[in-house]
């Protein structure tokens, strides 16, 4: 060992590693101190702007302009604090309060900045802009969000798609439908949830999804159908549960029929339950078991003798179901 490296090198290593340790300790202490001071300052600022935000959020139309004057004059951290609080509140409010909070963000310049950031070269900034634009009650936002829903960055597309759903506007539906295929790179859960949020306009639009070539589109359509199209979705779901070539679509259709509880679906579900695909059969049997027993007694009796234990189990009433 003594000949391995000279003492002076080891000593230098010791100095270097000790210095690195000291720097790390100082850094961690400095970060803690900065965070504490910053948090305290933000708390003070929030305490200062909170009454004004709450007052403005519930202000009548004629009082609004006076209330907003405070926000127009805010600068620096105070403005950021107001922005942050108003944005957080926007997730939980609707109607007039949402409109008033939007006005606060307009007065703070947040909306203008968000619109400008939709063309930023940094994807995270575009995504943040999309999030803000989806929260506010601002008609022009939809146009920007539609553009961002076709962004080159998948993350921006996802955030914009979610935001489009949140706007609940009719103009958003076409862009949301365009995001349904798996090739869009936007997860089906996000697109589906967005279409659900905009349910009042999406019901008619999604029905075409049952015949789409992309199984992901057909599956999401089958899931959404019971939520946004019922009972108009029943014929398409009945066809899907037996005829779709993709098992995941048939399972989704069976689950949707569970929610819709229609006697019309019993023969199709029985067919699906007798199909060779175990997961489809279980989903269809579970759907049948959830229906009133007067509709399904005969078919369930038959399924209780099925060779697959999972199907027999699904066909047997739970103790809760009686």
């Amino acid at each position: 060992m003594p000949t391995l490296i000279s003492s002076s090198v080891v000593f230098s290593l010791l100095i270097a590693s000790t210095t690195a340790c000291a720097v790390a300790v100082v850094l961690v202490l400095a970060m803690r101190l900065f965070r504490r001071v910053h948090a305290r300052r933000m708390r003070r600022l929030t305490d200062r702007v909170r009454p004004a935000i709450l007052q403005t959020a519930v202000a009548e139309q004629d009082e609004l302009d006076d209330s907003l004057a405070v926000f127009r004059s805010l600068r620096g951290r105070a403005r950021r604090s107001a922005e942050s609080m108003a944005t957080r509140m926007l997730y939980d409010v609707t109607g007039e309060t949402r409109t008033n909070l939007t006005h606060i963000l307009i007065a703070c310049g947040t909306v203008k900045r968000a619109v400008a950031r939709t063309t930023s070269t940094v994807p995270v900034r575009r995504a943040r802009a999309a999030e803000i634009l989806g929260l506010i009650d601002f008609p022009d936002a939809v146009g920007h969000l539609i553009r961002l829903a076709q962004d080159e960055n998948a993350e921006v597309r996802s955030v914009a798609t979610r935001a489009l759903g949140r706007t609940g506007r009719r103009e958003a539906i076409a862009a949301l439908l365009a995001a349904l295929p798996s090739s869009s790179g936007v997860p089906a859960v996000i697109v589906g949830s967005a279409l659900l949020e905009a349910a009042q306009h999406s019901a008619a639009a999604i029905s075409g999804g049952f015949t789409d070539e992309d199984p992901a589109v057909r599956r999401t359509t089958a899931i959404l159908a019971s939520h946004v199209m019922s009972p108009g979705a029943i014929p398409s779901l009945i066809t899907a549960v037996t005829a779709d070539k993709e098992p995941l679509v048939r399972i989704a259709a069976a689950r949707s029929l569970t929610r819709l509880q229609t006697r019309q679906a019993v023969p199709a579900l029985y067919n699906a339950a007798s199909s060779g695909h175990s997961a489809v059969s279980v989903a269809a049997t579970a759907a049948l078991a959830s229906f009133p027993s007067a509709w399904t007694q005969e078919v369930l009796n038959d399924l209780r003798h099925h060779p697959d234990v999972d199907i027999r189990r699904a066909a047997t009433a739970t103790p809760i179901g009686g």
Partner: peptide
């Protein structure tokens, strides 16, 4: 940097969430 747009609220409310 992404904490402001995680979409957790949307997930928590969606019937499509697995």
């Amino acid at each position: 940097r992404r904490s402001s747009f995680t979409g957790e609220r949307s997930m928590a409310a969606s019937p499509l969430t697995p």
